[in-house]
């Protein structure tokens, strides 16, 4: 546990020691505001909720989280620091979890910095606070999924750009599998049970249900198993590839 904590600490200092963190946070906040007010029809919807804010998160994360995750293992392998890290008295799961949690915490910080949105909506009306909290929890869990995919993608290569693209493509699949137009198209071509199954694998399906203000245990199980699966896959890849 303490070992994992020191790794989290180091990773966090890595994020904030480089411009990556600040660029990420600034771009994330600007885009959040931009999409919410320009495309989300925040004012015209006349609805005191943050739905117009959260609805963009899967799309923002699609480009921003691979950028956070891409260096996670690719950089360790490129600079060969992985050799030192994994010969310290640190187990591979501790190292993977430490890096993942640090990234997640970092995105959590960026997400927390969107608090002016909450203030705005509270000032303008009487929003359902429970729904907003659920929205944040859902968004944070969604970010964890993207990041776990990013951890896996980053372990596959030494090249950060390749890691970025692999992560983006895998996440894109998970997003559009449950995206309205794709689901509708699937419903007309394959049996309904298959279409539903594909949609239920998607980030969107579970994200939408949490956004309605209901935190269902099925959604939590989905997020937890996806993250566990991706981190285990990272471990398998690193075990077999670290030698090369």
């Amino acid at each position: 546990m303490r070992t994992t904590l020191s790794i989290i600490k180091r990773e966090m200092s890595g994020y904030f020691g480089s411009p990556v963190a600040y660029v990420f946070i600034v771009i994330f906040l600007i885009l959040c505001g931009f999409f919410t007010f320009q495309f989300g029809d925040f004012y015209n919807s006349n609805d005191a909720s943050l739905r117009a804010f959260f609805v963009w998160h899967p799309w923002l994360y699609l480009f921003l989280i691979p950028a956070v995750a891409m260096r996670m293992w690719a950089e360790e392998r490129r600079t060969r620091t992985i050799e030192l890290l994994l010969t310290l008295p640190v187990t591979l799961p501790q190292a993977i979890l430490g890096k993942f949690l640090a990234g997640w915490l970092f995105i959590g910080i960026a997400l927390a910095l969107t608090f002016p949105m909450v203030i705005t909506v509270c000032y303008l009306g009487n929003p359902d606070i429970g729904q907003i909290i659920a929205g944040y929890i859902g968004s944070f869990l969604l970010a964890g999924c993207y990041l776990a995919v990013g951890s896996f993608a980053s372990s596959l290569t030494r090249n950060q750009v390749v890691a970025f693209i692999i992560c983006l493509v895998i996440c894109l699949f998970f997003v559009i599998a449950g995206w309205g137009p794709v689901t509708e198209a699937l419903a007309t071509t394959v049996p309904l049970s298959v279409a539903n199954f594909i949609a239920s694998l998607s980030f969107m399906y579970h994200f939408d249900s949490v956004q309605r203000g209901v935190i269902d245990s099925r959604d939590l199980v989905y997020y937890a198993s996806l993250i566990t699966f991706m981190l285990s896959a990272t471990s398998v890849v690193l075990t077999s590839r670290k030698a090369s």
Partner: peptide, 26 residues
């Protein structure tokens, strides 16, 4: 262990790095 080519995290300070190692070592 001193690996070949001395791989050290390039973006860390010397002090931060050595203290990280000490912490991981318990």
């Amino acid at each position: 262990y001193l690996p070949e080519n001395a791989p050290v995290y390039p973006d860390m300070t010397v002090e931060g790095y050595l203290k990280f190692i000490a912490e991981v070592r318990g």
